[in-house]
Amino acid sequence: MAQQRELDSYDLRILAAWQQQGDMGPVEMSRHANLSPSQCSRRMQQLRSAGYVAKVAAVLDAQKLGVGVSGYVLITLRSHEVSWLDAFHNRIAAMDEVLECQALTGADDILLKVATRDLASFNTLLRELLVAPEVATSRSSIVLETLKSTTNLPTRFANG
């Protein structure tokens, strides 16, 4: 990994544009960053080498894939022993319906973001979680409407 450097306004424009369209090449990027394609190519490679781009992925259409229900599940674990945590992590890693899993502070230990076909498959997922020996309790909420959904991080904090 290259040495961390201060990002300038051109780098921030490149990163912001990349978040909107991850497969953008230097020619198209040059229109967003107001730089020549060769300068964009060099900067894009430097930003990749420095680790500013974690990965590039396509955002798929949930409806076309038959994913009709999304929700959140709050979980309290029975134990925080390493063996229990490892077993839970392995269980969650094997469930493709689990999109995100975060460890939390506060009363609940884990927050899951999940996506399933329908209410029946959401219920099946909840049952799988509830019978897991590592899980003490769970609470769930189904998403009724998505008001905002983005993978874009705010770039304004980059140099602060």
Score class of each variant (00 low, 15 high):
V67F: 11
G160H: 09
R5E: 10
M95Q: 12
E128Q: 14
T151P: 00
E134Q: 15
S121C: 02
Q102P: 00
D61R: 10
Q21H: 11
A62Q: 06
Q46T: 10
A136L: 14
C101D: 05
A2W: 07
D109L: 07
D96S: 13
V135W: 00
A54S: 10
R78A: 09
A103Y: 15
P154K: 07
N123F: 10
V59A: 13
G160R: 08
F157H: 05
Y72G: 03
V27A: 11
Q45M: 12
R42N: 04
V56D: 02
A58W: 12
R13N: 14
L130H: 11
R91Y: 15
S140M: 01
E128R: 14
A50Y: 01
L85F: 04
S138C: 08
S70H: 05
A115N: 01
F157L: 11
V67E: 03
K55P: 00
Q45L: 13
G71V: 04
L60D: 03
R117E: 14
R91W: 11
M95N: 02
T76K: 13
L126Q: 11
D11S: 09
D108N: 11
L153Q: 09
Q19R: 06
V98L: 03
L125W: 01
A87R: 12
T124F: 14
G71A: 04
T76S: 15
L129P: 02
L153F: 13
V56L: 12
K148R: 14
Q63R: 15
Q3A: 14
Q20F: 05
Q3W: 07
M1R: 02
D108W: 12
S121W: 03
H32F: 15
C40L: 03
D118S: 06
A87N: 13
G25T: 07
S149D: 14
Y10C: 05
V82E: 14
M44C: 03
L65C: 03
E128L: 13
G160E: 14
C40P: 04
G22P: 04
S49D: 15
I110R: 04
G25W: 08
N34W: 09
R13S: 15
R127F: 09
H32W: 15
T137Q: 07
R78N: 08
I142Q: 02
K55S: 13
D118H: 02
N152P: 00
N152W: 02
R31D: 09
A136S: 13
G51C: 12
R42D: 05
S30Q: 06
T146C: 04
V56G: 00
C40T: 06
L130F: 06
M95G: 00
L60P: 00
V135Y: 00
R5C: 01
D108L: 02
C40N: 03
W18S: 07
P133W: 04
A158W: 07
S38P: 01
L47F: 02
L65W: 02
D61V: 08
S49L: 12
V114G: 00
N34G: 12
R31T: 06
